[in-house]
């Protein structure tokens, strides 16, 4: 119920922004709706797959195992694995939140989960060839490596600040 309430509140605020936008420029607001709908439709199959995956995580991955791999027991290893898991994952950032949430509730160490999200969003092993093609291999490799390190650093800082 709580999630739905927050969702409705958020939807209400966005609807207000649309009302304002409609009064400002009808055509532009219509385009905005179209773009939003198209983006959502494009991502829908992926989202469904992700939520199905989260369900599998919950049923089949014993919390004990997550605690061993990503838990507080071996902090530096958890941090490194969190960053690496995030780096090799594919999918939009939206997909990382439910997965990270399930890891967190299963007993993962929060800094490792933070590193996981950060590197999920900004380190892309899968998109590396694409990034290299556009920017050059040197830039792509340097940026991804430094971002991975930064993700782990940010995870540690986040652990300290929470």
């Amino acid at each position: 119920m709580n999630i739905i309430k927050i969702g409705l509140l958020y939807l209400f605020l966005v609807a207000l922004a649309y009302c304002w936008s409609f009064r400002h420029d009808r055509q532009q607001a219509a385009t905005a709706i179209k773009i939003g709908a198209k983006t959502l439709c494009n991502l829908l199959p992926l989202l469904l797959a992700i939520f199905a995956l989260v369900g599998l995580f919950k049923e089949f991955l014993p919390p004990k195992m997550i605690e061993t791999v990503l838990g507080e027991g071996n902090k530096s290893l958890s941090l490194l694995l969190g960053g690496l898991f995030g780096a090799i994952s594919i999918g939009p950032p939206l997909a990382s939140y439910p997965i990270a949430g399930s890891l967190l509730t299963a007993g993962a160490w929060p800094p490792a989960v933070a590193a996981f999200i950060m590197s999920w969003i900004s380190v892309g092993i899968v998109t590396l060839p694409f990034e290299a093609k556009i920017f050059s291999w040197r830039f792509a490799l340097i940026r991804n490596l430094l971002t991975l390190i930064t993700s782990m650093l940010a995870g540690l800082l986040l652990g300290g600040l929470l």
């Binding site: 927050i6 966005v14 607001a29 709706i33 959502l40």
Partner: peptide, 12 residues
């Protein structure tokens, strides 16, 4: 519901 709102915002 949140997903719906977020994508409406992305369009905007």
């Amino acid at each position: 519901v949140i997903i719906l709102a977020v994508f409406a915002l992305i369009g905007l």
